[in-house]
């Protein structure tokens, strides 16, 4: 069983960082609402507060890791320019997609949107983590702050959904190949 270095980075970017970040959203939204909702216990368990803070910091780290690994590790492979005269574009995903009218929009709409909108997620989530870290349960008294933070958290979720969804389709129609091969285990 083998995997190429580029495949490994693509999986790490999409599944390791991006998908984990998306999975964490439901827990975060429920946790944030519960801690800061009016009528919640006046002095929440300090351990619960600390756990929520760590959870949000973890999400922030995942969000930044997803966009930086995408932009500076995976994206350069995606947009690599083929040498003049290259006929087989399988190692040049951007050019492979643009070579056919049936796939060009996956780049023009999918990748062009994904590569930019994804950055809204870490900006928004960093703010959300800061606001909840700073105010904690007292957000129940600051409904405007709480509502704004929750709306930005939902916006981060939508941005990640667009990026992740198109990322999955792009990897289906023009997967990134190549690089050093990593041998994982021998077959029987």
């Amino acid at each position: 069983m083998e995997i190429s270095m580029r495949d490994l980075w693509t999986v790490l970017h999409g599944m390791g960082f991006g998908a984990l970040f998306m999975l964490a959203f439901t827990g975060a939204l429920v946790g944030l609402f519960r801690v800061s909702a009016p009528g919640s216990p006046p002095i929440p368990n300090p351990r619960d507060q600390m756990m929520l803070r760590l959870y949000l910091i973890g999400m922030v780290v995942l969000a930044w890791a997803a966009v930086f690994s995408g932009a500076y590790v995976v994206y350069p492979w995606y947009r690599a320019v083929p040498p003049i005269g290259t006929i087989d574009l399988v190692n040049y995903p951007r050019y492979l997609l643009l070579s056919s009218t049936t796939t060009a929009e996956w780049h023009r709409l999918g990748m062009e949107w994904k590569e930019h909108v994804a950055w809204i997620a870490p900006i928004a989530m960093t703010m959300v983590a800061y606001v909840f870290g700073k105010y904690g349960p007292s957000l129940a008294k600051h409904r405007s702050l709480r509502n704004a933070a929750l709306i930005f958290a939902v916006a981060a979720f939508l941005a990640t959904g667009v990026a992740g969804g198109f990322g999955a389709f792009l990897n289906k129609y023009a997967p990134i190949h190549g690089g050093e091969t990593i041998h994982l285990m021998n077959g029987k």
Partner: peptide, 25 residues
């Protein structure tokens, strides 16, 4: 801690960051 200024600054700055991403795009 109960004053909203620090949180408001973070929220508005996040909005500015998102808009500037769009403007530079």
């Amino acid at each position: 801690d109960l004053l909203n200024g620090a949180g408001a600054a973070a929220i508005l700055a996040a909005g500015i960051g998102c808009a500037s991403l769009g403007v530079f795009t």
